[in-house]
């Protein structure tokens, strides 16, 4: 029983981390129709900036703010300078460009900050809450991650559903010509989309890092699981991203905890879950059916 609770809670926290990253992918997908493979490296870069600040005496929260701001700048600059030139071209070219960014930024981090493991602080405790006689695998930091992800999800839903900017961003992504006719400044919207997505990605990177270790490639496995979670959820839906992340996190934790030598099966399980879901619903769990044939 105790093990079940702990494995479940571990999965829950891990799932929220996938969800955080999936949210960033959903945001960028909704606003520019590009899957950004560089998201992980960009997030890692801001995490290293935050760590450098913290090590020089800044508080966690101040460093967090600077990291998020630098994430926005990084995202916007990359969109303006690099991605802008391949937007509207073959989709695969945009994918290759983000792959190139992914590799180059990661190597850049290693050159600037070195490639050793470093621990990343968290503002909250790392000791599990006491329940009865036992500590459970749920820490104040886990709670912080979950709350932060849920708030981010709520903000994104609100942005797209209730604000003019969100509407304009969606319009720019779906039909540039029409959006332009309607007076939307498409270029600015695309830049904004990348900037905001980079902020969310950077937040995900910092949440994941808290109480863990960072090194230039620390986001790599999250790119995969975050992407799988986003696709599970349907790529278009922030709620889907969170649900997809949770499903993935829990399932992988159970496989790892209960199947003998299950840790080796984690990646395969992610494949099986994704295949099963996509065979039943080729557009993901929360697909809005019309969007997919576009």
């Amino acid at each position: 029983m105790q093990q079940f609770v702990n494995v479940t809670l571990t999965g829950l926290t891990e799932g929220m981390v996938y969800a955080a990253f999936a949210l960033a992918l959903v945001l960028i997908w909704r606003s520019t129709r590009i899957v950004n493979f560089a998201q992980g490296s960009m997030a890692a870069a801001t995490a290293f900036i935050a760590l450098a600040l913290i090590q020089s005496g800044w508080s966690y929260w101040a460093a967090l703010v600077v990291a998020l701001v630098s994430g926005f700048v990084l995202g916007a600059v990359i969109e303006r300078v690099v991605v802008r030139r391949v937007e509207g071209g073959p989709e695969l070219n945009a994918v290759i460009v983000t792959l190139g960014l992914f590799v180059a930024i990661q190597a850049g981090i290693a050159i600037v900050f070195g490639s050793s493991f470093q621990s990343f602080p968290t503002p909250f405790g790392l000791q599990g809450f006491q329940v009865g006689d036992n500590r459970i695998a749920f820490t104040p930091t886990s709670l912080y991650v979950i709350v932060a992800v849920l708030i981010t999800m709520g903000l994104l839903v609100a942005l797209f559903r209730f604000t003019r900017v969100g509407l304009a961003m969606r319009a720019s992504a779906f039909g540039q010509e029409v959006a332009r006719l309607l007076g939307v400044r498409v270029g600015r919207m695309l830049t904004l989309g990348w900037g905001l997505a980079a902020v969310v990605g950077s937040l995900a990177g910092l949440l994941i890092a808290g109480g863990e270790f960072i090194y230039p490639a620390y986001m790599d496995s999250l790119i995969v699981f975050g992407f799988v979670a986003a696709v599970l959820g349907g790529l278009d839906s922030p709620i889907g991203a969170v649900v997809g992340g949770l499903i993935l996190g829990l399932a992988l934790s159970y496989v790892s905890g209960y199947v003998p030598r299950g840790s080796a099966l984690v990646n395969v399980s992610a494949l099986v879950i994704l295949m099963v879901v996509l065979l039943v619903r080729p557009g993901g769990l929360f697909a809005s059916s019309t969007a997919r044939r576009a």
Binding site: Q2, Q3, N6, V7, T10, E14, A137, E212, S221, L252, S253, S256, G257, Y258, R261, G262, S263, A264, V266, N267
Partner: peptide, 19 residues
């Protein structure tokens, strides 16, 4: 309990040792 290198979530393994 065995972990696979690259999979940084060792919660299930440590929980099983404890159990």
């Amino acid at each position: 309990e065995r972990y696979t290198p690259g999979n940084t979530n060792v919660g299930p393994q440590i929980a099983a040792l404890q159990a």
